[in-house]
Design a binder for these strands. Structure first.
Lengths: 208, 208
DNA sequence: ATCAAAAGTTTCCAAAAGGAAACTTTTTTC
DNA sequence: GAAAAAAGTTTCCTTTTGGAAACTTTTGAT
């Protein structure tokens, strides 16, 4: 994203996709499988044909009498057109719900660097899928950076005011004005400079 | 997010996290496990202690000599503090790289509804982690909606101009002015209305 | 209710997994 | 570079899985 390292400085800002880190899963694989098979309207015989596993084997798995091998599980997922995660996902993955975090204008968490003045938004919530922040771009020259910025994930930026030049590893530099936006793979080298009189203000959102 | 159903209308806008939907996974489970163990800096002996699986068993699994039972896999994931999906994720999820999509001011893909005028951004790229769009909020009244809007994922919004009132299922309505932003779980019912004279303009970003 | 067919479970056995210990390879120490 | 220690692999054997078929239960048609 930038030269800001959110992991280290704001550990709570860590963008993550895990399902609320539930305790070690005692996953009732058998029950789950039965559910899935039923929902597909299949009999053991039919499921057997589709998966290549014996009718009896399926029965035993569903009744938790045996613990299928990975091989068997692959046949299951392949034959029933489901993917592994689905097999383990508890019935309904109702992710964290009902959270909300408002950040008033100029009231984010400030984090200045030599090239930017970052204002982190929504810092009250953890385990977010996205990390939003506004930045004032102070850099004026390519040379203000020692190297390309690159990191995991996707990045989206929108110019709120001013004018910036967006440099990236595989493209020609491009000038962006107020209202313009760009979406890019952040593992492609990138960097920004303000090309207008005043410092440009941008909104940045990252997702990994 | 809104009453806009991106899946149906703009299939290519589908926000997804899957790794490019590769063909049925021949998942090299053994190699993957070895990588993980190495990355944790563990020897077979240590991993054995942590997982409760015999050193020899681990060796065989890593060398694809046997296909672990689900039981064994649970010991693996539990003991090594990883979760199942991680085990199946291909070695390196080097997501698409070097992609970039610029959307000039007012040049997004228009999509008007009764309550909003959406302008989808970065529509050239598929398989994005985020879906950004600007919206002009036309709704003026709670009653312009038939019910709460709710859907999977996280949502972030920033007011670009005007004033909106943000209603949500579990909180009191709140007024947001230019520069204010809110981050919330989108499966919590939510809706927006413009509360200023002119229609408010907002930036919206969703991630699932 | 009775019988037949379909669905599901259990038994029995061959095949494969998992563990203890022997063995081999790699790394460290002197 | 040899010896010792550590890491990893293979062997051998016990336990468990997976499949074919026998058996039991459920469905449903008359």
């Amino acid at each position: 994203m930038t030269d800001l390292n959110e992991q280290d400085i704001y550990p709570s800002m860590k963008v993550s996709n895990d399902q609320g880190s539930k305790k070690i899963e005692p996953v009732k694989l058998g029950l789950r499988l039965k559910e899935i098979r039923k929902s597909l309207g299949l009999t053991l015989e039919e499921a057997s044909k589709k998966t290549g596993l014996a009718r009896s084997t399926l029965s035993k798995i569903e009744n938790e009498q045996i613990s299928p091998t990975f091989q068997a599980m692959q046949k299951l997922t392949g034959g029933l057109q489901i993917d592994l995660p689905q097999l383990f996902a508890p019935p309904k993955q109702l992710s964290a719900t009902g959270r909300r975090d408002i950040t008033r204008n100029e009231e984010g968490k400030a984090h200045p660097t030599s090239t930017y003045e970052h204002e982190l938004l929504a810092t009250q919530l953890t385990n977010k899928k996205m990390m939003p922040f506004k930045s004032r771009v102070r850099a004026r020259d390519f040379a203000d950076y020692s190297d390309w910025i690159r990191h995991d994930g996707d990045e989206f930026l929108l110019v709120l005011s001013g004018e910036i030049t967006f440099f990236s590893e595989f493209y020609e530099p491009v000038i962006l004005n107020e209202g313009d936006s760009v979406y890019y793979d952040a593992n492609m080298g990138h960097m920004l400079i303000s090309s207008s009189e005043e410092d440009a203000l941008i909104l940045w959102v990252t997702a990994s």
